[in-house]
Design a protein around this nucleic acid. Structure first.
Lengths: 196, 196, 196, 196
DNA sequence: AATGAATGAGACTTCATTCAT
DNA sequence: AATGAATGAAGTCTCATTCAT
């Protein structure tokens, strides 16, 4: 006899709803520009209710990462256990691409709010992940251009999804195109010296 | 008979100094997080003095762009008058790389404050320039991957400079490495169809 | 088991207290000259508390009208349903005089802050009421002097109360005197043509 | 060879122009709401220029009165020298009506900015004149209603001009109508006791 | 006769946060 | 699980005024 989407009896999902709305607004307007009042109003709840579920505004952001960063942590862990071959790197990119597809809004947010987020604890964490990922992909003693290729590959994947907004085409196809280019870049970085 | 170092007579360069400090702080902390009080304090001026030189906070940002966006506008104009050959595109990238080097802080700022800047008038202007540049570089009917390559080339150049901060090496060399990769990407995008 | 006099729990009447103090200060010093700081200080509350109860400064003013304008609206409505006879008009004046007595401070405020209030939303509303009242009292095709008499009657009632401050006498008697003069004026306006 | 109304060579009339614009804006928006910046901008002069001609903002207001209050002072002086007959009072009203017509904007301003002006030096002066005028018109030991009639007569003349804005008709005719009603009121106040 | 540059005070407003209930 | 009421800090901005030139 329960309406699962009725307006009045949001059972225990308030926490989740806060996260959803917060991510939406953070991504749309930026972290600093989004006020707790706005989030609360859109949920038809008081600001104080947010504080029942989260200790601070930053805490909401942190929670978004905790929930969504897992797949990427898993990927990094997996990669660390593989041999550092080209094939591994390509597979990392493939998996990364899929992982990103799931958490696209969060990455869009990170991409667009780097400055705001830099001093927040979440900024450190994120930078960490990036460095680890880059270390997996690129060879430390490679030529400078090859290092650029690897880093470009990663950032193209980040930027890719919402940068191709103005390009026509099915999202899944776009994702694959971006992945292909990224793999290409990393392959070139690896294969320049014939025989490697 | 002028007092060149009197404390209360800043030689008429206050406007310039505001712009300098503002860019520095905007880039460092983000636009929203930087308060006019902060800018004023660092200049040892009152907030009201800022308002003598600029009508609003946003106006300071706008002024930064007006001064620094010129080279890029010139480049776009030049490119529009050239034949749409691969050679032209490569030259555009070369010139763009140099132009960027001059206004690096501003681009770092844009890159890191996209969300905050999106609603500001300056956001529209910037997006405009990007779209025009992309239109110059990429062929509208190219394969999706080639379009990705072109867009990647441009964004790698934007991101490149400060993303390579963690990589050792002379800045000028880094710039050239990024440029080389970008040219490579655009060349590949052009040359995929055998015989072109 | 409530603390009826605790300093930090103002029994929920804060909104009312804000309105009281605001009306007092607005009437005394004018709307523009009265700052929210002043209102807050007199209530021993922070400025932010005002903003919990009212969205803007203007909103405080609007709320004062919403609460106090009702009797006059009722009167206008009642008058609209009566025949347009002299007797009706006299009765309107009688009732208006009583209504005004209750909201005197607000009318004093309006009278003395017309310029400041003109651009505020409340200005429009007020002007509206006045026009409607005048339309009830005066005949549109009457002689110019008779129109002046009617308008004078109304404004004398507005101005009357605080303009007679310097005259000795009991307030209720003053009110009646003003009313008598107003009725006189309107009666003259009606009865000039012998036989009516 | 001089253009008397040329935009560039405002000879020595700046002081006058400031007064004109100030009165216009004060009347339109109120004293508090009108900033010196606004006045200066409309004159295409800097704020500092205003300070060359006037010591303070209030000083501009004071100067407006000094120039325009003379006729009324003269009238009061003249009245003081006449016998206190009904005929004198009627003549005072007649002359007052004419004097008001010349300084209508200033009176509109006073009428609409009483609150703002009350604390200004000019407020005292103005109130003084009013009291003196009322003392001339009304008998101190008259019935309360008759006192009201006299005061009403004066205020109707003040309010009259811009309160009749919404009424059709030639301004000069309106003025005469207002005057007629005022004279009527004062006459009634005088003549109630038969034989006076 | 007027400007350019600046100031100090203070305006309205918003924010994240707290806490008793 | 959530609200109502409030706070302290800070934000952007405007104002009347000053003063050397």
């Amino acid at each position: 006899m329960s309406h699962p989407t009725g307006k009045q009896h949001r059972r225990g999902n308030t926490r989740q709803r806060i996260q959803d709305v917060a991510l939406e607004l953070f991504a749309e307007q930026g972290y600093e520009k989004t006020s707790l009042r706005e989030i609360a109003e859109r949920l038809e709840v008081t600001k104080a209710a947010l504080y029942y579920h989260f200790k601070t505004k930053e805490d909401i952001l942190v929670s978004l990462f905790q929930d969504l960063q897992r797949p990427i942590d898993d990927l990094i862990e997996w990669a660390a256990a593989q041999p550092r071959t080209l094939a591994t790197k390509q597979e990392v990119l493939r998996r990364y691409s899929e992982a990103l597809a799931d958490v696209a809004p969060l990455f869009r947010f990170m991409q667009e709010n780097q400055a705001a987020v830099r001093e927040l604890s979440v900024g450190e964490t994120f930078k960490d992940r990036m460095i680890r990922l880059i270390d997996i992909i690129k060879e430390p003693d490679a030529a400078l251009t090859d290092q650029v290729r690897c880093i470009s590959a990663l950032f193209s994947m980040h930027a890719g999804m919402f940068i191709l907004r103005d390009v026509e085409g099915d999202p899944e196809e776009k994702r694959k195109a971006v992945l292909e280019v990224a793999i290409d870049l990393v392959t070139q970085a690896h294969g320049e010296h014939p025989g490697s």
